[in-house]
Write a protein that binds this DNA or RNA. Structure first.
Lengths: 181, 181
DNA sequence: GCAACTGGTTGCATAATGCAACTGGCTTTT
DNA sequence: AAAAGCCAGTTGCATTATGCAACCAGTTGC
């Protein structure tokens, strides 16, 4: 089982290649989803996903290796092994859900059941979004690529300073009414 | 070039399998990133990514086929063909950036250059986030999976009604001070 | 016309994936 | 304590994807 494959141009100065090293493989995201959906055992993944036995074994091994899944034999039945998402694995949720939503948007008649909802009001979640540091929702036109040295330098020459970025748990939205009409 | 491969369990009632059908292949995301970064031509992708010629040809073909890239010969030099992200392709940005950020977070010494910034203040963007319909930033604990029929039914029995969801361009953040101390 | 450029394709080697059958540790049944 | 069954994983073999190098066709510049 050689590791000879070229490591996807790691030099390319961004985290994508590293992320794809693990998650770019067929089934990785499906296993992640299944895991998030509450599956924890080999045979569960096997029958739920319809993946080949040896591949599942291999993928689970790699996911564990990369710290995305934790693996431990269960106390009451030591034949059974429990795979569980680590924090590192949980951090893949935005990527997974973004992909999912994209597939849903363009994927003809996908009905989504069960539905992923906000625990608080049990309504479907909104779209996974790119945010500015202050939490504005950004679209493709709002993005730019600048040299590391020029970060914060505005067109008018003034220098923007970083603010305390938003983070999870923040009430994110709305200093004004939104969209709608 | 058979299409015999099992279509990744499409039945699984969510958009992921469909999304992975195209983007789950090696190089797809790297090509997307390159395309977003301003590359538009075969030879550019070739030398920038270090991908094999035939594979690049194949991947570009598939991405075009799936409407993620547009393809057209250029007017002034009809040897040259221009590949350009479609809106459908642009909609993959959150997924791509989320993956990238994840890779960055866990990928040792990745320095990211050039840096992806908010056009407005030219500061680095924040993390790609899962939002509720009203724009609250949600973490894994805030998520639940419920049967389609039970959407909106809260634990106390009351029924939540959908609100106008947030959308791009919205000022998203903050009705209270954030994190920090 | 001829060389060079651009975007392919083809042939062949290697790696990844899939299927089916088998192993090895553990648990339950008898 | 055998026997049978379950769970996770491995092995052998076929198919598919990927990579490398060489070749091809339409354009362009000279």
């Amino acid at each position: 089982m050689g590791e000879i494959r070229e490591p996807l141009r790691e030099l390319t100065e961004c985290g994508l290649p590293m992320a794809l090293e693990v998650m770019g493989e067929r089934w990785s995201f499906m296993i992640l989803r299944a895991s998030f959906n509450g599956l924890h055992h080999f045979e569960e993944f096997l029958s739920e996903l319809g993946i080949a036995r040896n591949i599942l074994s291999n993928r689970l091994g790699r996911l564990v290796e990369h710290g995305i899944l934790g693996r431990q034999p269960m106390a009451e039945d030591r034949r059974k092994i429990e795979y569980r998402l680590t924090d590192k694995g949980m951090d893949l949720l935005p990527a997974m859900i973004a992909l999912r939503q994209w597939g849903q948007k363009y994927g003809a008649e996908v009905v989504e059941n069960p539905v992923l909802v906000d625990e608080r009001d049990r309504l479907p979640i909104g779209p996974v979004s790119i945010l500015s540091q202050e939490g504005r929702i950004l679209g493709p036109e709002d993005l730019a690529l600048v040299e590391r040295a020029n970060v914060g330098k505005r067109a008018d020459g003034s220098q923007a300073e970083p603010v305390a970025p938003v983070s999870r748990g923040d009430t994110a939205i709305a200093d004004g009414l939104r969209g709608a009409a």
